[in-house]
């Protein structure tokens, strides 16, 4: 299948929304790949972080939203600390997750009320907060 590049796709409203939510400029990324090369969880991802950004630059929002990568990103910020153009991939992932959750899911996957006292005591606090952020709109 040939990807059809068009002005309308590239300027899709939701892609603009990704930039607004994340505070990142997608066009600022010049595709050096340093984020992908240094990511500690990249082996679990289906596409590398720089490719997620590339898909968004090409106006291929659905493919980016469908990737496992955006759920694997642990927001460790290693990529952001090394990016030569100051792009924060984790923020872009945050934005993409929010779009998925708000658009595609009527109810949140994790309800704060369901987080039992036991779970709070057993699970690392960071992990619970992370799960709430990631999986809830």
């Amino acid at each position: 299948m040939r990807l059809k590049l068009t002005r309308d796709l590239i300027r899709d409203e939701l892609i603009t929304r990704v930039q607004d939510l994340s505070g990142q400029s997608l066009l600022q990324c010049y595709q050096c790949g340093k984020c992908s090369a240094g990511c500690p969880v990249v082996h679990e991802m289906d596409i590398v972080p720089s490719e997620v950004i590339r898909l968004l630059q090409l106006g291929q929002l659905d493919e980016a939203l469908d990737s496992k990568t955006i759920w694997i990103c642990a927001s460790c910020l290693q990529c952001a600390s090394r990016c030569p153009k100051g792009v924060e991939f984790s923020s872009i992932c945050d934005a993409l997750r929010q779009i998925v959750l708000r658009k595609r899911m009527a109810t949140p996957r994790v309800d704060a009320d369901d987080v039992s006292a036991i779970m709070v005591s057993d699970a690392p606090q960071m992990g619970v907060v992370g799960a709430l952020r990631k999986l809830n709109g």
Binding site: R2, L3, K4, L5, E51, R54, L55, L58
Partner: peptide, 15 residues
Amino acid sequence: VWGVDTLTGKKVEIA
């Protein structure tokens, strides 16, 4: 225009 985006490996087409 038929080309390719080698960064994603995808074939692209622009009218």
